[in-house]
């Protein structure tokens, strides 16, 4: 698993609960280190182990923790870059939803060894969508829920999200787009200098 995933979990826990909680989680997961390197590769088994350890340490269900991670990744000021990169996908929320099909390929353009789980958008009638997510780590659909919630807000769209279950490495998130211009949304300045 690419170090970016694990490092994101670490950053989330440190920024949300503090480094003491992170160190305790790392101990629970039997890591013999506490710092993940974003640019290194780690054993696949480490990611679910650390997620379970965090869940136990902060006493919250793992799926809730995973949704919070998704929210954190696109809303924390430290990750402004992630939000910006996602905004490149489309001019409105629906456009953005469709661009998720290309997310894995886009990520690989930037980092050839980064394999994001594949996502496929099914377009039903009347603003109903299903997001079919590959879930190499159980609960990945919940991470996407967190991401989508923030991004809908960012585009100023009102959307209802529901994790409709999954199995065998596939999870589905149902998206109902109620209003595309619910609020102003956040400005996306294409030419802003990356900080």
């Amino acid at each position: 698993m690419h170090g970016l995933f694990n490092r994101s979990i670490q950053n989330f826990v440190c920024d949300t609960y503090g480094s003491a909680v992170w160190e305790a989680s790392a101990r629970h997961a039997n890591l013999d280190f506490i710092e993940f390197e974003a640019m290194l590769e780690y054993d696949d088994a480490i990611t679910p182990a650390i997620l379970d350890a965090v869940s136990k340490t902060v006493e919250r269900p793992r799926v809730d923790v995973m949704e919070d991670i998704g929210t954190y990744l696109v809303s924390h000021p430290r990750f402004e870059g992630t939000r910006r990169l996602l905004r490149f996908g489309g001019v409105n929320f629906e456009d953005f939803l469709h661009s998720l099909d290309d997310l894995a390929d886009r990520a690989r353009l930037a980092l050839s060894d980064l394999h994001l789980p594949r996502i496929e958008l099914r377009d039903h009638v009347d603003g109903h969508f299903s997001l079919i997510c590959e879930a190499p780590v159980a609960g990945y659909g919940h991470v996407m829920m967190g991401v989508l919630r923030v991004m809908a807000d960012d585009y100023g769209a009102l959307a209802l999200l529901e994790h409709t279950g999954g199995g065998q490495g596939i999870e589905t998130v149902s998206v109902t787009l109620v209003k595309t211009d619910f609020s102003e949304g956040r400005r996306f300045d294409l030419g802003a200098r990356a900080s």
Binding site: M39, L85, F88, R106, A107, L109, A110, A194
Partner: peptide, 14 residues
Amino acid sequence: AIEMLYLVEAKTAA
């Protein structure tokens, strides 16, 4: 152009 801008930002971050 958009892909180009995307790449510039993504590569800079990486």
